[in-house]
C-alpha cells in the first residue's frame, strides 16, 4: 500500500520530505524484521518507536559511516534487544510446535518453506540458545539481509567481530539441525526439543 519505491530511500533525511521517503521505503522491512523477532503486536510499537527515534536523531545520521538502512536496523535491533523475554517466549512457543507436514512427497521436499515449517521447532530452539550478540548478527544477516559491513555499522562493532559471531551462530544452528542433510534436503525425522525460555546471555 504505502511501500512505493522512493527515489530517496537512501537520501538525506534531515528535511521532512527526505525523512518521509525513507519512512515509506524502510518501514515495511523494519516492521517485518521486528515482527519476526518479537511478534506482530509488539513489533507495531517497536517499529513506530524506531522511526520516532530516527526522526529525533536524524541530524546525527552520517551516510559516510554506513547506509541509512543499517542505521535504522541498528535502532530497531536495540529496541528488540530490550524485549529479550518476549523474543524468548515466542521462540519457546515455536519450539513446542509440532510439525504439520512430512516430506514423503519428493516435490514438496524441494520447497524450502515446507522444510522450514517442518524444522521450525529446531530453528526456534537453536535461536533460543544463541547469545544475544550472536542472534543479533545472525538475524540482521538472514532476515534484514545486511552485509557484514552494514551489520558492523548497525551494531557499532568491527567487521571481523561480525564474521566471527556469524560463524559461531551458524555453527550452532547447524548443530541443532543435527541430521538434516543439506545436500538432499531431507532428514531422518522431527526429533524436536523445547527451547529454554528465559535463558539469559550476556
Amino acid at each position: 500500500m504505502e511501500g512505493m519505491r522512493p527515489t530517496a530511500g537512501e537520501g538525506p533525511i534531515v528535511d521532512p520530505a527526505g525523512f518521509e521517503a525513507a519512512f515509506r521505503w524502510h518501514f515495511p522491512p523494519v516492521y517485518r524484521f521486528l515482527a519476526r523477532r518479537v511478534g506482530p503486536a509488539l513489533a507495531e510499537d517497536l517499529a513506530a518507536e524506531t522511526f520516532a527515534i530516527a526522526y529525533r536523531r536524524r541530524a546525527s545520521f552520517q551516510p559516510g559511516r554506513g547506509s541509512l538502512r543499517s542505521w535504522l536496523y541498528g535502532i530497531a535491533n536495540n529496541l528488540a534487544r530490550s524485549h529479550w523475554r518476549a523474543e524468548q517466549h515466542l521462540l519457546a512457543l515455536d519450539a513446542r510446535l509440532l510439525p504439520e507436514t512430512d516430506l514423503t512427497d519428493e516435490s514438496a521436499a524441494a520447497d524450502q518453506r515446507l522444510i522450514a515449517a517442518l524444522l521450525a521447532p529446531r530453528l526456534a530452539t537453536a535461536l533460543g540458545h544463541l547469545t544475544r550478540d550472536q542472534r543479533d548478527v545472525l538475524l540482521l544477516h538472514a532476515w534484514a539481509e545486511l552485509s557484514h559491513d552494514e551489520i558492523a555499522a548497525a551494531l557499532g562493532i568491527a567487521p571481523g567481530t561480525v564474521r566471527s559471531r556469524l560463524s559461531r551462530a551458524r555453527a550452532a544452528l547447524r548443530e541443532q539441525l543435527g541430521d538434516f542433510d543439506f545436500d538432499l534436503w531431507t532428514f531422518d525425522g522431527p526429533a524436536v526439543g523445547p527451547a529454554h525460555e528465559g535463558r539469559s546471555h550476556a
Partner: peptide
C-alpha cells in the same frame, strides 16, 4: 532455512 522461518508474517 532461517530465511524461510516465520516468513509468513505479513507486512505492516
Amino acid at each position: 532455512l532461517l530465511r524461510a522461518f516465520r516468513e509468513e508474517i505479513p507486512g505492516p
